[in-house]
C-alpha cells in the first residue's frame, strides 16, 4: 500500500523513522534498515562528549527517564566510523547534531556538508546555550530564528529544527524556525522529569532533572504537534511516545508527515518494522493515503 510521504525536500517510502538517541547500527540484527522511512542518528557534537554520570536511566509507570548527556564520539569520528555503517542502505539518513554556541552549530553543519550520504539534518536545540545564560537554544524564539537562518545559508539539504516542549508557547518557536528558513520541524524533544526513591529521598537519576519520554508523554506530544500544524504550514516530523501503528495514526491525524519511534525501540528493537507492516495493512484495508488523513483530526 502507498505509505509514501515527504517533508519539504525529502520523499520517504513510509512515514516511520527513528527518534534520535534510540537507534543505532547495533539494531541491524533486529531491523531491516531498508524498510524504514528514514533513519535519524543519535545527536553528535563537535568534540567528543563524555555524557553524564550514572545512574542515567529510570523507568516510570508508563515512561522512561534518561540523562545520557549526549554522549557521542564527536563529528570527526562520526563521519569516519559511524556514517559508513549506514552507507550500504538506501534509506535516507538524517543526522541529528547539537552545540553549545551558534558558531559551533555552524562548524558541525559545515563539516557534515562534506558527506554526500547524509540526506538531511535534525538540529537539536534543546542543549544549554552558553551564550545565553545556559538556557536551551530552543526556548528563545529570536535565538532559534537567528540560528536557523545561519544554518540555512550553509546547506541546501533538508533542515529540520527539533523543538523542545519545555516552552511557554511552542507555536512562537515554530514560527521563528520557519521564518529562519527551516524546511520542517521535529517535535517534541523530551519533557523534563524526575523520580525520587520515596524511602530515602535520593534522586533516581544522578543529574536529578532529566528527559522524560515514552507513552506517558504521547498526549503532550500530540497536543504540541496539533497546535503547530494548525498554526503554520510546515511539514512536521512528530515524536513522543508513539509505540504502535495506532499511535502513529494519531500523530498523522494531528498533522505529522513523519513519525519517529523512540523509547519503544527499547521495549522491542524490531518494533519499527512491525509498525510499518501494521500501518501498511491499515492503509490497505481502509484505502488511505497520507494526504487523505494528515492533519484531518476534527
Amino acid at each position: 500500500m502507498n505509505l509514501k510521504t515527504k517533508l519539504n525536500k525529502l520523499v520517504f517510502q513510509n512515514p516511520i523513522t527513528t527518534a534520535s538517541g534510540t537507534f543505532g547500527s547495533e539494531m541491524e540484527e533486529y531491523v531491516n534498515f531498508n524498510k524504514l522511512g528514514a533513519i535519524v542518528t543519535k545527536t553528535i557534537t563537535k568534540e567528543r562528549k563524555a555524557g553524564n554520570p550514572s545512574p542515567r536511566l529510570y523507568e516510570t509507570e508508563w515512561g522512561l527517564l534518561n540523562s545520557i548527556g549526549l554522549q557521542n564520539p564527536g563529528v570527526e569520528s562520526f563521519i569516519t566510523e559511524t556514517i559508513p555503517l549506514y552507507e550500504k542502505y538506501q534509506t535516507p539518513l538524517i543526522v541529528s547534531f547539537s552545540a553549545s554556541t551558534q558558531e559551533e552549530f555552524m562548524e558541525v553543519l559545515s563539516r557534515l556538508e562534506s558527506v554526500n550520504s547524509i540526506s538531511g539534518y535534525e538540529v537539536n536545540v534543546s542543549c544549554p546555550n552558553v551564550e545565553n545564560e545556559g538556557l536551551a537554544f530552543g526556548v528563545d524564539a529570536q535565538v532559534v530564528n537567528e540560528l536557523t537562518a545561519k544554518l540555512r545559508k550553509l546547506t541546501k539539504k533538508e533542515l529540520i529544527i527539533k523543538l523542545t516542549p519545555n516552552v511557554t508557547n511552542i507555536v512562537d518557536i515554530a514560527i521563528a524556525a520557519k521564518e529562519g528558513g527551516a524546511d520542517s520541524l521535529a517535535l517534541i524533544n523530551t519533557l523534563l522529569g524526575m523520580a525520587i526513591d520515596p524511602m530515602t529521598g535520593k534522586s533516581r537519576i544522578m543529574k536529578k532533572i532529566c528527559g522524560y519520554s515514552g507513552s506517558a508523554i504521547k498526549p503532550v506530544a500530540l497536543a504540541n504537534v496539533y497546535r503547530v500544524a494548525q498554526a503554520i504550514d510546515i511539514p512536521i516530523l512528530a515524536m513522543g511516545g508513539a509505540e504502535n501503528y495506532l499511535d502513529v495514526l494519531e500523530f498523522i491525524y494531528a498533522g505529522a508527515s513523519m513519525v519517529a519511534i523512540g523509547t519503544a525501540n527499547f521495549y522491542n528493537p524490531a518494533i519499527t518494522e512491525k509498525i510499518i507492516s501494521d500501518l501498511s495493512q491499515h492503509f490497505s484495508k481502509y484505502n488511505l493515503t497520507m494526504d487523505k488523513i494528515r492533519g484531518k483530526s476534527f
Binding site: 543519535k42 536511566l57 523507568e59 523509547t263 525501540n265
Partner: peptide, 21 residues
C-alpha cells in the same frame, strides 16, 4: 547497571573507565 535497550544503542548503562583524556 540499569539498562534500557540492552544492545548498546541508548548509552543508559554507563560505567566510568580509565581515560587518558
Amino acid at each position: 547497571e540499569y539498562m534500557a535497550c540492552g544492545i548498546g544503542v541508548c548509552y543508559g548503562c554507563a560505567v566510568q573507565v580509565v581515560s587518558n583524556d
